[in-house]
């Protein structure tokens, strides 16, 4: 899929895919996407065992979006997202042990077991949640971008949102302020075609061009093949550079797909098995990168196997940690409500 851009501002010069991506970076993308997939599969298994409670929203299928975006960011940049957040945390370098232990509600989790799947944070890694109210992360991310500008840090915030969140009013309130005040924020719409069970065609006007949603505010947008990690990276470089250079916000619409249900208990009656199978066979981001790397002889089958094995070990370790880490002490019930004045 070609990268389409909104005509509201002069489109930046198009860069060819795979321009400057090194073999080492390709291997890193592959490893990170595989880590997210295996981690999420393990989370699904552990949910099935009753070790993870409540809601659990898996990122399987969408891995290229966050891995490609993250590769275009610098250490001082920040990100935040909605409740489908495990992939984002792993991509920004958070410890899989701490993420998995939060899913099991243990004291070794990032929020000491008090946040759960949807609520984790790491100031150290620039990850600001993990937000459970659809769309609420968008003004918050805009506010972090405001702080970046206020503190003159030359940093950028990436605020991820789904195609469903894009119909919340506060998203447009954010677009308006971000453009008005030229805030360094990149809005990444992860368009996986379904807002829970409602397709974009049934929920969103002009649903094939959601990247135009900022046009009224003068925010440039582009549509990107979110199943191609290299395309994501190349597009991200343009958007992030735009925001960092003081030109204000940018909107990226990532055309992606989630293989699993909205949450673990989603019957997924709103789409056919064939539809899911077709995406898995034809557009899977991990298989596509694997094919590219084999063709370019970046790595051989044996090397791939070794990466698989290494990733599996990391995930197994996180699952073990998440089961052996103790439950939070009952005294934790009352801590962290207020900071000491």
């Amino acid at each position: 899929m070609a990268t389409k851009k909104t005509p509201t501002k002069r489109a930046p010069k198009k860069r060819t895919a795979s321009s400057d991506v090194t073999n080492e970076q390709l291997l890193e993308f592959y490893r990170e996407m595989l880590l997210i997939r295996r981690f999420e599969e393990k989370a699904g298994q552990m949910y099935g065992m009753g070790l993870i409670g409540g809601f659990c929203h898996l990122y399987i299928g969408q891995e290229a979006v966050v891995v490609g975006m993250q590769s275009a960011l610098e250490e001082r940049d920040t990100i935040l997202t909605s409740y489908r957040d495990h992939g984002h945390m792993l991509a920004c370098g958070m410890d899989p042990d701490g993420v998995m232990a939060e899913l099991t509600g243990r004291s070794g989790g990032y929020s000491k077991g008090k946040g759960g799947s949807m609520h984790m944070f790491s100031e150290e890694k620039g990850f600001y949640g993990g937000h459970g109210i659809v769309g609420a992360q968008v003004p918050i991310g805009t506010g972090i971008a405001f702080a970046h500008k206020y503190l003159e840090e030359n940093a950028v915030n990436v605020a991820y949102l789904g195609d469903g969140a894009l119909n919340q009013g506060q998203v447009y309130e954010s677009f308006n302020m971000a453009s008005l005040w030229e805030l360094p924020v990149v809005y990444v719409i992860e368009n996986n075609s379904y807002a829970m069970g409602t397709s974009t065609a049934r929920s969103s006007a002009n649903s094939t061009e959601l990247y135009h949603r900022g046009a009224a505010y003068g925010i440039p947008g582009m549509q990107v093949d979110g199943m191609d990690v290299i395309a994501v990276r190349e597009a991200a470089k343009i958007a992030v550079e735009h925001a960092r250079s003081g030109k204000g916000p940018y909107i990226m619409e990532m055309m992606t797909y989630r293989y699993r249900g909205h949450s673990m208990s989603d019957p997924a009656k709103y789409r056919s098995k064939e539809e899911v199978q077709k995406v898995r066979e034809e557009r899977d981001p991990i298989e596509r990168l694997r094919a590219v790397m084999l063709k370019k002889k970046v790595i051989d089958e044996a090397g791939m196997k070794q990466i698989d094995k290494d990733v599996k070990a990391v995930v197994s370790k996180s699952a073990e940690f998440a089961q052996s880490s103790p439950e939070p002490d009952p005294s934790e019930l009352y801590t962290d409500v207020y900071a000491d004045a």
């Binding site: 600001y128 506010g143 506060q170 954010s174």
Partner: peptide, 20 residues
Amino acid sequence: TPITEHGFAGLGVGAAFYGL
């Protein structure tokens, strides 16, 4: 600010998360 209470309250919270 524009007349945008939901938006600027959320923006303020984001700025506070980041230490302002």
